[in-house]
């Protein structure tokens, strides 16, 4: 199941489909005074247009690192990332990012509206269009009435919805999210998951989600990429054939859902166990 250097795991790359994003033998090491610390080994996979892909793996495996490399915030030490066929060397215009730490990704000195509008103003979008796109995005996440408020006047879930609205208003081809729902309560989390599914259908976006929550990955995704090993590699790639419409209760009651969930869980367990063994041995 572990990939051999060279070719990717079955199902990870699908050259026949309309590929939006491709990781091509991506490797990454953090360098420090103590030397290089390899985190990503040799990672290859592709994401098709309109697809919802989740990246899962045990904590500390390098999910956030991979996401930073994929979104152009850091350069891979080997291999390359491509977006719409072009090599990514800096954060591309077609990509929007939602980070886990919403409280620090919003600017506390700006109103909700100005937070959402800032990337657009920076991209020199016309004033009237900035206003309409901002209003539409805030409306889509159910915060139309709160546009004059400041981030610190909102609850955690609302702040995360602002971060999502900011990404929506940016009109990206690919929405990239790093554990976006990790620090909200369970009910808010379900609401935000359904919100993302609805927005993705409405806006036809491609979504790449990093999560450590297996339920979330199975519930949301069309495909799940499992990371394992040290340095991390793609251990497996699973299709999630649950259809485009999902429901928190009905979908999660399906036998296929339970089967998939079990499979991903055992793979992550195996991956964590392998890592601990290595450390001990």
């Amino acid at each position: 199941m572990t990939s051999i250097k060279g070719d990717a795991v079955a199902g990870a790359t699908r050259p026949s489909l309309d590929t939006v994003m491709a990781a091509d033998h991506v490797a990454f090491s953090y360098s420090s005074a103590a030397g290089a610390h390899p985190v990503l080994g040799d990672i290859s996979f592709t994401i098709a247009r309109g697809e919802f892909v989740s990246l899962v793996g045990p904590s500390g495996i390098g999910k956030t690192t991979l996401l930073r490399v994929l979104s152009g915030l850091m350069q891979p030490t080997a291999g390359e990332v491509r977006l719409d066929g072009e090599r990514v060397t800096e954060p591309p215009r077609q990509l929007a990012l939602v980070l886990q730490d919403y409280s620090r990704s919003l600017l506390p000195w700006m109103s909700i509206e100005r937070n959402v509008a800032l990337p657009l103003r920076s991209a020199k979008v016309a004033r009237t269009e900035v206003r309409s796109r901002t209003a539409a995005a805030l409306d889509a996440v159910g915060l139309a009435g709160d546009s004059e408020k400041y981030p610190w006047q909102l609850s955690g879930g609302m702040q995360q919805r602002v971060a999502i609205a900011r990404a929506l208003a940016y009109q990206p081809e690919v929405l990239v999210m790093d554990e976006p729902f990790a620090s909200v309560d369970a009910q808010t989390r379900f609401d935000l998951e359904d919100l993302v599914l609805r927005l993705r259908r409405e806006f036809g976006m491609t979504v790449l989600l990093v999560t450590h929550d297996i339920d979330e990955a199975v519930y949301l995704s069309d495909r799940i990429v499992v990371l394992a090993g040290k340095p991390a590699q793609v251990a497996d790639c699973l299709d999630v054939p649950l259809g485009p419409i999902r429901d928190q209760i009905a979908t999660k009651a399906l036998p296929e859902y339970a089967a998939l969930r079990g499979r991903v869980l055992s793979e992550i367990r195996a991956a964590s166990a392998a890592r601990t063994d290595k450390k001990v041995g």
Binding site: R68, S71, G72, L73, E90, P91, R93, L95, A96, L97, L99, D101, R104, S105, L107, W109, M110, L118, P119, R121, S122, A123, R166, Y170
Partner: peptide, 25 residues
């Protein structure tokens, strides 16, 4: 450091606007 700078970079907020909207505040 950190989240804010990453967010600004990811949304391509740079130069004078980065200075005025992110750095100075």
């Amino acid at each position: 450091e950190g989240t804010l700078v990453h967010t600004a970079r990811a949304y391509r907020i740079r130069g004078p606007r980065f200075f005025a909207s992110v750095l100075m505040p």
